[in-house]
Simulated assay, not measured.
Amino acid sequence: MPEFVRIAPGALVIGRPLPWDVFDSDGNVLLRQGYVIQTETQLEHLFERGRFKPRKIDLPKEETFEDLRQRNPFAEYAELLSTLEATLNAITSRDPSSQKRLMGLSRMVERTCMEAPDASLALVHLYSINPTIHEQILFYAILSQFIARQFGLESKRTSLLTSAALTANLALVPVADQLNASNVILSDDQRTVIERHPNRSVKAMEAAGIDNKLLLQIIAQHHEKADGTGYPEGLSGSDILPEAEIIALSERYVAMITKRAYRDRMNIADARRLISTLGEDKFRPAIPRALLELLGNYPPGVLVRLDNNEVGVVTQRASRARGTIVQAIFGPRGNRYSGTFERDTRLIDYMIRDHEEPETMPSMDFSLLWGFRS
């Protein structure tokens, strides 16, 4: 039997997917990687009985690397986050491996989005109730990828945009959770930190030896606005790179659907309406339009109630060939199905009645809804 290690308190968090398979002391699988812990009782049970097999993650030996595994965004979610955290820490500590790490991470994100687009978009909606700063940054990169392709940005610039989205908020990481948890008006010092973070992120990148001019320009501009009211330089119109506007819109959308101490999260329908008003004064009109086209009325990962009163998770966006596809997980009386049932929402019994806005997401392995197998 392989060597297993007890799970330390604090290693697992309610509402977050398991970063690895969990075994009992005899090596039997208790829960698969990607399962979302929902209750304190489950958590205590895992700390008491659970074991895991540590994985050694080697740094890429080349400037870029190829990972040929099938992409399962849910199973890889924890690894993406830990790799992101390690990459940002490397940059801030001026580690010589910083550029290699960033390129490797960017390629991981790109390939995941390319190979599992609906599931990758679902991460943003399933885990956006109360995300950490690293989760938010990962969401920015995922959304920026998709918006860029919908907008028609060339592939080389899209790759650079991914790296920019992953690092644009580098200088905010130490204080972001504190800012999000505050339910009072920001102090002058806090506003200064926010307004200076684009330039501070650029300086941290340069200090780590990352000097691509376009990459740094995207980061520096990602809070500029088309009407000239942004920061730090007050740029306007075509002086702002489209990549910078794409990151800004990704951040704005994530902020809309995220719960903060001072406000509730916005539902998808209201967020779409607000995005539709952002053309010309804040962004190039084609960029908000690209996001709206990308999301559709019911993006992957949102919960909806059907006309037969079932509740399910949207797994595929509507297309010309089919309607929005929903995997029903709760029956009409609120009973949890032991499995899931695919519903084509073009059919009269399964038409979508409304969005569901849960305080917490259901505890389950979301991989199964998209047909991934461990």
Rank of each mutant, 00 (worst) to 15 (best):
F23H: 11
N267E: 09
F47S: 08
F4Q: 12
R346S: 14
S182P: 05
D344V: 07
I194Y: 09
R320Q: 15
P174W: 03
A248G: 10
G296P: 01
H45S: 15
A168T: 12
G50W: 07
N199Y: 06
I329S: 06
N89G: 05
H134K: 14
P19T: 05
S82A: 13
A90G: 00
S82Y: 08
P285F: 03
E76M: 15
V173Q: 01
S374P: 10
A168G: 07
R289K: 15
G27Y: 06
R191D: 05
T167R: 00
S201W: 03
E245K: 05
L170D: 00
T345R: 04
E3G: 03
L102Y: 00
G323L: 07
V29Q: 13
P299S: 07
F52G: 02
R16H: 07
C113P: 01
M361N: 13
Q316C: 07
E357A: 06
Y337D: 08
D281N: 10
A116L: 12
I7F: 03
P131H: 02
D188W: 13
T192L: 13
G10V: 03
D211Q: 15
P117V: 02
P358Y: 09
S93Q: 08
Y350F: 14
Y337E: 02
I246H: 02
S363C: 13
T258V: 00
A290P: 11
E135S: 10
R284H: 10
R51K: 11
A90Q: 04
R353K: 15
G104E: 04
N335R: 14
A226K: 11
L368V: 13
I137V: 14
G27D: 06
R111F: 10
P358N: 08
E110L: 11
G331T: 02
H125M: 12
F330V: 08
L306Y: 00
I240F: 14
D264C: 13
R336H: 09
D270L: 09
I142E: 08
Y127W: 08
P198M: 12
P242Y: 08
D344Q: 01
H134C: 07
S97N: 14
D264A: 13
G34D: 02
A244K: 06
M351D: 11
V202S: 11
P300L: 06
G312V: 02
S374W: 10
R317L: 12
V109G: 06
V175D: 05
R263G: 01
T229H: 11
P9L: 05
S120Q: 09
G371D: 05
V202K: 01
T83F: 13
P362E: 02
D118F: 06
A122Q: 09
A122K: 07
R6M: 04
R263Y: 00
F139E: 00
S98F: 01
F366I: 06
E245W: 11
S319V: 08
